[in-house]
Design a binder for these strands. Sequence first.
RNA 1: GCCCCCAUCGUCUAGUGGCCCAGGACGAAGCCCUCUCAAGGCUUAAACAGGGGUUCGAGUCCCCUUGGGGGCACCA
Length: 510
Amino acid sequence: MALSIHALILLLERCLMNRPARTRFAPSPTGRMHLGGARTALYDYLLARQSGGQFILRIEDTDTRRTVPGSEQELIEGLRWLGLEYDEGPDVGGPYAPYRQSERREIYHHYAWELVEKGAAYPCFCSPERLERVRKERQAQKLNTGYDGFCRHLDPDEARRRVRQGEPHVIRFKAPREGTTTAVDLLRGPITTPNFMIDDYILLKSDGLPTYHLAAMVDDHLMGITHVIRGSEWLSTFPLHVLIVRAFGWEEPLWVHLSVFLKPSGKGKMSKRDASLAMDSGYSIYIGDLRALGYVPEGVLNWIALMGWGVEGDDVMTLEEMVRRFDLKHLNPAPAAINFSKLDHFSGVHIRRLPTAELARRLQPYLPAADLPLLERIVPLIRERLITLDEAPQWVDFLFQDEVHPQPGELVGKNMSVEQTKQVLRRALEILESFPELEAKAIEAPLRALVEELGLSAGQVFGVLRVAVTGKTVSPPLMESMEVLGRERTLNRLRKALQLLEAQSVTEGA
RNA sequence: GCCCCCAUCGUCUAGUGGCCCAGGACGAAGCCCUCUCAAGGCUUAAACAGGGGUUCGAGUCCCCUUGGGGGCACCA
């Protein structure tokens, strides 16, 4: 082979890679927006932005039976939440509107017949029943289950007459029977298929709507799409699509087929069952759920970006950094297993990177009892402890409760007697009462002196106070927690804890 | 069954014939820091699926095997 794959790709690049890319995310509104779709959309977005081109949302709703109401809205909300702003789309319009395929019927009809005129397609009158019968027969004979070509050689004028008379029909692509077709995928290089393997696929259904094969090729051409990024499930019909584009005499876009996502075990693709299994462990493959679970979009984006895209160096990136660094050549054609613990990692990293005011703003829905200024005081206490935003309440709920209810057993520190514990509380009370307000920096030194004084460890003393003030053994840093809680409530809780222990000893004594 | 695609630590990956006794990240283990939990720092274990070629030299190129994935609709 004189031309290596790399040389070939380099050649393609020279033609297409340096000019502004027009990309499209073209989902069908048949279900929920998931990881796979989001990643495709992300790569589309990245390519468009880094080349100064456009990113388009196109709804492929040509299957009226499978269309699920509301899923287009979920798609749009998902893209917005992720920050993947599109330049053209059904709700924002654009120079190539409409962007919903169900509203472009006439266009497909026109192009289907253009292919018929050119002799590259033909009307087919076979009933679904006959098709089914033929398929079964061929299956029994272990032949390929493709269309048998019954209507392929009908007299064109005769066929046209039958169509005019209103006979139900579809339009099929007249795939060549001889020779081979070579289609070039950017990640895999040339893929050559013998043409007899390519079926006479249906382009226009009997309901007048196109199949994907026609609709996507027509729209990609009409809308000036330069790079088609789609799932690898299209690899098997890839030669067909190339053939269709060539039959029209159009310029081919650059093709990129992305691998599928596998279940976390790496064994098999995600199924509905696996999806609900993920839910049970607090994760999800659906964008809407991830948002509800409190993940930040930056984390989700970073996570999905790196499933199939390898970077050298720092792999923590914002959307802007990804735009700068994205490179189609570094995409991996191999299937990737979903790794939710990595999602946790990226979510935590991006939460920590958010400016205080921004984190406070995002936390607001989760802590409705707090206003923004309070939230900004809370953020430093919990920032590096959050994996998801919805974990915030469990860290700082003690700030919003009238009183806490420590377990007496937890109040008494490790290797400490009840008497020692009471002593800690009594002395801490004395010390803190002398402060007009509890400032973390100011109260730390005296409390540490108390540790010395009582001959206990810091862990023991602060542990007692922690449980008394927050009601639990795990909390944000003690001094800071007291500061935000405020002097009065802190002192009250210490007194309450003391009373609790005294009541206990009375009971025990009696 | 037929066709197509893919193959580096458990997982995501770097690697485009010598820079690799294979680098990073997540996870795991250990240590440090430390008022708990985190965060942070340091360290460790952990991979080129197998077999043939090509080449002075192969994780990198070719072939086979194996394994995984996708597809075989008037769905996308």
